[in-house]
Design a protein around this nucleic acid. Structure first.
Lengths: 216, 216
DNA sequence: TTTATTTTTTAGATTTGTCTAAAATAATCA
DNA sequence: TGATTATTTTAGACAAATCTAAAAAATAAA
């Protein structure tokens, strides 16, 4: 069994692993709102528990055991997000903090029942995939919007950034889940993207495009 | 804002207050599975935060501020119990531990929405009243079964003891929520009670009777 | 390939909640 | 009442997670 804090570290390491591997101390410190020294201490502890492989001055990788623990937390987080949005009428951008707390509730029965109650959803309200209880993801095949070429079409199925300002920005532009888009132009100089949504032309920065997930 | 631990102390003190006032150190220690010395430490802390009135060697009472905090935790606990039973098909005696964790989730919006989702329930699955968000209880007027006299009738509307063995015992005897009962006899020597449920004669100890709540 | 800069780690301290053992107070009872 | 017993508190220590300041290692730059 892990503490609340240990679970948070595992989850953050899991998410950061998708960007860089191994994950650096400072990256964790920044995400978890703490100091690098504290992170080092925790990494040693997680390493002793065989939840991560940790090499001094190099960084950490999750062990299989650590990965499964992290995925389980992600599963709980995303199921709770579905619950909040679908059953309690939370908005897309209101759910994150509460789910951050709910994900640490410890009851296998609860999560199984919740999953069934929600009718076994495959994605959360941000379009992120929900792993099953064995840690397997249904593959959904999406691509980041900034990877699309001029003329290509697709449907918005997710985002990879969940901050409230970002989500509000998208909503204002009409770039919400399920919307069909088409790439009109890509600016050479800064990589910003012009696209069509609902027959409106919209322009977004490369930064924003990178966080929008598209399926075809 | 209080810590998880502080919240637990307040809740326990609140519950024990119904039995004895002020509440003694040892009583808290026993309930919270800790040592008397630890309780003393915490009582000093809660006292400094003006959540309890604490007199050395005498015991504690909740302040108004402490009482409202405690009631809010009780409210959350009971609403979650309703959710678990009504929406996730938990059994009567399976909900307590999970609700014990859920009650510490911190979001006013979440609780308001949950309350509405559950259609503003007035009692939890054990028949205990759910306070509203201002801390007021709808008065439901019940009496403990051991206070009834021979020949009196009533309906089981709650219990004041929630351990799994106790609840299973009641279920086995057919003494579940909503059942109508009639007192047949009360033994002089140990206070045990004979009663009619569904036309069956059952006998229960005074201890058990004390924890069954009856409305007329 | 040295030097400078950034990143990471160590060492020692702090806070929260807990503990044991011993001392202080209150309650009981002969 | 005075002695015994039970309850509660103090004193000092400990584990978890964090911090600051300084040292060590890795990376980048000149």
């Amino acid at each position: 069994m892990q503490s609340y804090t240990e679970e948070n570290y595992l989850k953050i390491i899991y998410h950061l692993s998708e960007i860089s591997n191994p994950v650096q101390t400072n990256a964790i410190a920044e995400r978890i709102q703490t100091k690098a020294a504290s992170v080092t201490d925790m990494l040693k502890k997680l390493s002793e528990k065989e939840l991560v492989d940790y090499v001094k001055y190099q960084g950490v990788t999750l062990t299989e055991k650590g990965r499964l623990t992290a995925i389980n937390i992600v599963r709980k987080h995303r199921l709770w997000e579905v619950f909040l949005v679908e059953k309690l009428s939370f908005k897309w951008d209101e759910v994150h903090e509460v789910a951050e707390e709910l994900e640490h509730i410890n009851s296998a029965l609860l999560i199984e029942r919740l999953d069934a109650f929600l009718d076994f959803p495959k994605v959360d309200p941000h379009g992120d995939p929900i792993p099953d209880k064995n840690g397997n993801f249904a593959d959904l095949a999406f691509i980041k919007l900034n990877k699309l070429k001029v003329g290509e079409k697709g449907t918005i199925t997710g985002v990879s950034e969940h901050s409230s300002p970002f989500l509000k920005h998208l909503e204002k532009l009409g770039l919400t889940l399920g919307k069909k888009i088409e790439i009109v132009a890509i600016t050479d100089f800064d990589g910003s993207v012009e696209l069509l949504v609902d027959n409106n032309k919209q322009s977004i920065s490369r930064e924003v495009a990178k966080h929008i997930l598209i399926s075809k």
